[in-house]
Nucleic acid binder design. Structure first.
Lengths: 198, 198, 198, 198
DNA sequence: TTTTAATCGAGACGGTACGTCGCGTCTTGTT
DNA sequence: AACAAGACGCGACGTACCGTCTCGATTAAAA
């Protein structure tokens, strides 16, 4: 959670306006969509949303944090994972979905947020807890099923396997800036699976 | 090269001051070391170096570009690559060296630069041309030797192999923020090599 | 009285907390002592006193008004006036006392309050009714006794005389910012008395 | 001079824009006319004048200082002093002029500035050096002529006399808030002169 | 005894201004 | 030309107060 200042549960004083929280997040994402997260300044978010700057600062430490919060709470519900007939197919589909999420407009923002997370511990925490770890948890479950079903070797180092799968994807998107085609994803997944075959 | 505005070779007026170029780079790196690249503003670089802002802008488009330039021209000479008796050992040593470079103070800056490159095409270009591609070229040569020497299978997809090796490293440093131990590097390299074994 | 909103005498609901009124005034004066009346903001008064902002606003229109109230109710009891053997001596003592009150920490606040009264009608009213006019009333009584006792001429314009006495003092403290010595007070009083001599 | 940051005489770098200085002062006075000096915020001055906030802060420490500067440089040229046939008449005319200056819109600003000067040393300095002292110097010259011409007694304490004259005026305008009529000025001047008669 | 109504604390809210910083451009005189 | 110096318009920063508001909890007089 980027939002570090949660209103005290005891609900003393006037309660926070949840509507304001929502509209601020929405406007922040809008602005980031239009011109990158550098465009989502607190001033601009405040102006567009009609919410006072002080109210925004009461909830988030800076503009990118708002974008992160809004972006994730917008995208997370959209990402399920489909069970396919074989584990390798399920993984392939999941990775394809990830690649799709990291492409286009939304992908630009996510890459930009990842970039900002390099020097902002708050963003880093949020990025990890709400984006990386959940997906990794899902991935791990799938792979464990692969082990049980005999598609993967019994003593496979699943964490290493996840590092290789996700690493291969993120490396090309964020480090070497090489577009990822469906074919390249397929051969990546295929090779990794083969190397962990029973 | 970040530096896009090269002085025309035999220009008429007063020639550029190379000393200024050097001191500016040095100060920019210093400032980045002290407080991240956000600390290396053009104003501050100018003040510390005693070089006028206009002089800086004549050479670089913005602050991070100076840092990138200074950082790379400082770190590149330090990175050679040692030929070991086996290819896997050579690769392991190279990766270890990379991990070392990406750890500590210098690593913070490099990760920070990579972060900024996500929204700055100029930085991205420089990062690719001067950091990623040269190392990848070297890595490729090593792997090709591995194929020739029979340590790797003849039809190995070397680009995929490089993606897996580098991807595994960068993913943990820049995406999942998981510290890389010597052991984890060793098992990563070992696994990838095994999967491309002849 | 600065305090404009008096609770209706026999009201129905919960009665006002007089203790709160007192502690608020005390804290306001404390804060003004520490950093001028600009330091006595309603927020700060509320925080230090532990009294809610709304409770403060129920009694006073703004921060300076609290300071004015607290300051005057603190200083007024301390100012008596001593009857001397001659009227001129009594006046001199009174003026000396005024000068003392307008010097040092307390003087800074009073001058500051007078400054604020230049653009705040509420403060002006309070300043007049509770500080200027009472002292002037006392001064007038003394001078009238001077007339009766033959120390002053029978048809003396006592209001003009008071203007000259007080004017001479305030002018130096508040307008020309020239320190007032005991000697300068003495010669001021002496001259004015001489000019109204019988 | 309120303006404390004078561009270095050596005129290094781009010279300051005098036009900007002028328009800023003009707008500041305008704003103060419209709603008191509290209305002359740096933000508003910047917006109305089209001059950047940073440019304003490069010259003045705060809004009231701009008003003070603009106000004085606007009003000072307008105030000469007329030589009358007798010294008492000259003084009376000068005081009348002062009362006029302290009445109406301009008077409100001047009183407001004097109020602010109570807690702002910069304003106080400017107020003294550019408003109080020059007028007092003139007044002193007039009185000295009065001594020479035998209208005043030879050993008159002219500083005390000035304190009484100016004090009587400022006291009523700024302290007791009693309107000054022409008659009251006349009787004030008359009495003071009589008390310093030869 | 139950309303009823004013008070209290806490603190959120929309505003507005603060004074600073950095940007990238510009205008000087000097080298 | 390039250079040091530094002014300029711009716009964002994060903070502080303002005065208002909405809560739930007290506290007494009126019903």
């Amino acid at each position: 959670m980027v939002e570090p200042n949660i209103a005290t549960a005891a609900s003393k004083g006037r309660p926070r306006n949840d509507e304001a929280t929502r509209i601020v997040q929405r406007c922040a994402v809008e602005l980031a969509n239009e011109g990158g997260i550098a465009n989502a300044t607190v001033d601009r978010i405040a102006q567009r949303s009609g919410v006072a700057k002080s109210t925004i600062y009461r909830r988030w430490p800076n503009g990118p944090a708002v974008v992160m919060d809004g972006f994730l709470s917008e995208i997370l519900p959209l990402i399920g994972y489909e069970e396919k007939s074989t584990v390798i197919q399920t993984v392939e589909a999941t990775i394809m979905q990830l690649v799709a999420a990291l492409s286009g407009k939304r992908g630009d923002i996510l890459r930009d947020l990842l970039g900002s997370a390099q020097h902002d511990p708050v963003l880093r925490e949020a990025f990890l807890k709400r984006w990386i770890e959940p997906r990794r948890r899902i991935g791990r479950e799938v792979l464990e099923r692969g082990v049980m079903r005999g598609e993967l070797c019994a003593d496979a180092d699943l964490d290493l396997m996840l590092d290789l799968l996700y690493g291969g994807v993120y490396y090309r998107l964020v480090v070497s800036f090489t577009p990822l085609t469906k074919d390249s994803v397929r051969s990546l997944v295929a090779h990794v699976f083969r190397s962990f075959a029973p």
